[in-house]
Design a binder for these strands. Structure first.
Length: 641
RNA sequence: GCCGAUGUAGCUCAGUGGUAGAGCACUUCCUUGGUAAGGAAGAGGUCAUGGGUUCAAAUCCCAUCAUUGGCUCCA
């Protein structure tokens, strides 16, 4: 009997029933067959060795398809497990999925401490087993047989997984002597795996729960070619060069000190200059957008956090309280309660609304020690914070304006790789994790969705990630080394107005609750500058660069002239300095290049003679000579944002 | 908080039980120069901290602190 196979280009070919995708690949070309890792049949990824008995659409998957890569890495995880079982008999296996770059396997080593000194041995064993080109053989097993197999093997993790499966949907895969519970699919044989690198190990709780035993997670990556592994490792090296922790040190932006404490960054003059620039920019933008600036203290009495409802939710991540005059004071972990108090300090009419209170507010959060990460996760942070108090009929417009502010900022900084997450509540957790007001949850979530859709913003909706007081939008970005974090956030709050008894007088002369929007589009200084360091790889645009211009006298005969130039530029608010060291011009240029300073002004006899500067741009472009004033005008223009 | 790794000069790092090292940076002197490193000399370390083993510890063991890769968390 013959079946019709439709290929991605639309062509239809006839084959005998029982043909495999691999056979089909061979019929097209031997070269293709050598590269086929798996197949997509009617949209489902399956083994390339599965037989086809009915008409189908077929896509052959290779290393160039993400599903092909995933299959390759998943199969590699089985290879890793096979090698582990050979090297450390009796180990038990959790799960071993592919990830974005490579794969991992969670292992229970019993009492053995698996560490980095085991990596080479493991890699060698995997290489050895890969060379055998063992086929990945699929068998369907009954639930009873599956349970029997892993009971005999004593692997309680696999048994737990099996207990959640139904009879008839359980399959085993075997390569060499290793059998694993797996739904597949897999690559045809281990011979495809040519390059192997064990990356690192980490503790990981079984099924992701702190209550469970911690297993040893082994991360590794494999490739079908040695050269691809080399490329990957080179790419990792490149990413390390962008790491904000390295750049922050090299460019003298920030530092940490044991005597100050973990997660408490110290800003060096260059970092402080960036903060000042960012604040000026934000303040100007916010002023234009109708925000009013407010200021609030760093601490407050415990009673305020009880009133706000923050304390029961976040006590664990606040620094412990200080006792003073029989009162307990907390370092603030958020600015909202203070702002609410500013709102309630005055009486407001509906005509005053919306009121937008903005503050670069410094907060302190006791992040878990294991969570600290350079500038991205710290314990003292200064937020680009603001709270908008508005009437319900103003909410959409206000929320939309906030989104537009984000878009404007992101455009200025050239941020285009991000995901907007719309975080919603989980109705099952009303009264626990979330304020118990089902109606307001649904109402505000619908309002947010409406704004997102009408603004044409791409977003994903996620359940059970809202703040306790309302739905929110988070902007997810990635660090140079691939770690995901929330850059900015925009939240709705329908709970705290009630708690703080916030009201305004409406048209009918009645008290009415405002809706509140929390927003922090520029995140915190810590996180944002950390992000910008990586985003620009330290090559900041002129307006943001902590040092904008280096004036480099050819010799100390021209030091005075250099100082004159520098003084002149400073009058224009340009951040300039003179390199007066007794070094040659070449050396001064090199050092300015390494420090990533946008402009270098070389001044010597020629320039001093007629009030000029010779301009070199970071990166090497020689812009020639011009009057100092002309240069200052040029920079002024460039720093307009 | 949990599992693993790391901690030596300002920075980057070498140093497997026997007198603490290199490069860069720093200081001083010489050199006065034209678009990515001029030369010489000098200074600089309680080898994270505290215990232990040893005739002897940067090195081996234990604890603590910090950093870091993950896990859990993230107002």
């Amino acid at each position: 009997m013959s079946i019709s196979i439709t290929l991605p280009d639309g062509s239809v070919r006839q084959y005998d029933s029982g043909v495999t995708p691999l056979d089909i690949a061979k019929s097209i070309s031997e070269g293709l067959a050598r590269n086929v890792l798996a197949a997509k049949v009617n949209g489902n990824v399956v083994d390339a060795t599965r037989t086809l008995t009915t008409d189908a659409t077929l896509q052959l998957l290779t290393w160039n398809d993400s599903d092909g890569k995933k299959t390759f890495w998943h199969s590699s995880a089985h290879l890793l497990a096979e090698a582990l079982e050979a090297l450390y008999p009796g180990v038990k296996f959790g799960i071993g999925p592919p990830i974005e770059n490579g794969f991992y396997y969670d292992i229970d080593f019993g009492d053995y401490k698996f560490g980095s000194e085991d990596f080479e041995k493991l890699e060698a064993k995997m290489q050895e087993l890969a060379k055998k080109s063992s086929m990945y053989l699929r068998t369907e097993v009954s639930k009873a047989d599956a349970e029997k197999y892993f009971t005999e093997k004593g692997d309680q993790y696999k048994l737990e997984l099996i207990s959640e499966l139904n009879d008839g949907e359980i399959t085993f895969y075997q390569q060499g002597n290793f059998v694993d519970l797996c739904r597949g699919p897999h690559i045809p044989d281990t011979g495809f795996i040519k390059a192997i690198k064990v990356i690192n190990t980490a503790g990981a709780y079984w099924r992701g729960s702190e209550k469970n035993k911690q297993l040893t997670r082994i991360y590794a990556i494999t490739f079908p070619k040695k050269s691809e592994l080399d490329e990957y490792l080179a790419m990792l090296e490149e990413a390390k060069k962008r790491d904000h922790r390295k750049l922050g040190k090299d460019l003298e932006i920030f530092t940490f000190d044991d005597d100050v404490g973990p997660g408490l960054p110290l800003w060096l003059p260059n970092g402080a200059a960036m903060i000042e620039t960012l604040e000026n920019f934000a303040k100007k933008t916010e002023r234009e957008a109708g925000y009013l600036r407010v200021k609030s203290p760093h601490i407050a009495k415990e009673s305020m956090y009880i009133k706000s409802g923050h304390l029961p939710y976040y006590k664990e991540s606040m620094f412990p309280p200080m006792e003073m005059d029989g009162e307990r004071y907390y370092l603030k972990a958020m600015n909202c309660p203070h702002h609410h108090k500013i709102f309630s300090a005055q009486q407001h009419s509906y005509k005053d609304m919306p009121l937008r209170y903005a503050e670069y507010g410094t907060c302190y959060r006791y992040e878990q020690s294991g969570e600290l990460f350079g500038l991205m996760r710290v314990r003292s942070l200064t937020m680009n914070d603001a709270h908008i108090y508005c009437r319900e009929d103003q909410f959409e417009e206000e929320f939309k304006a906030v989104n537009e502010l984000y878009t404007r900022y992101f455009k200025v900084f050239g941020i285009d790789k991000y995901v907007m997450r719309f975080s919603k509540h989980d109705p099952k957790k009303l009264g626990e994790k979330y304020i118990d007001n089902a109606e307001m949850w649904l109402k505000t979530e619908e309002m947010v969705r409406k704004v997102l859709i009408s603004s044409g913003i791409n977003y994903v909706e996620v359940e059970d990630e809202a703040a306790f007081y309302g739905p929110k939008i988070d902007i997810q970005v990635w660090s140079a080394i691939g770690r995901e974090f929330t850059l900015a956030t925009n939240q709705v709050d329908f709970a705290q107005a009630e708690r703080f008894d916030l009201w305004y007088i409406n048209e009918k002369s009645e008290k009415e609750r405002p809706l509140i929007i929390h927003r922090a589009p520029l995140s915190t200084h810590e996180r944002f500058i950390g992000f910008l360091l990586e985003h620009y790889a330290g090559n900041f645009p002129v307006w943001l660069a902590p040092k904008q211009v280096a004036v480099l006298p050819i010799s100390d005969k021209y030091a005075n002239y250099a100082q004159e130039v520098c003084k002149f530029l400073k009058k224009y608010d340009i951040r300039a300095f003179v390199d007066e060291r007794a070094e040659k011009a070449g050396r001064k240029i090199r050092d300015a290049e390494v420090a990533k300073i946008p402009y270098m002004l070389i001044v010597g006899e020629r320039e001093a003679a007629d009030g000029q500067v010779s301009v070199r741009q970071h990166g090497g472009a020689d812009l020639g000579s011009m009057k100092t004033e002309a240069f200052a005008d040029k920079i002024k223009q460039e720093t307009e944002i």
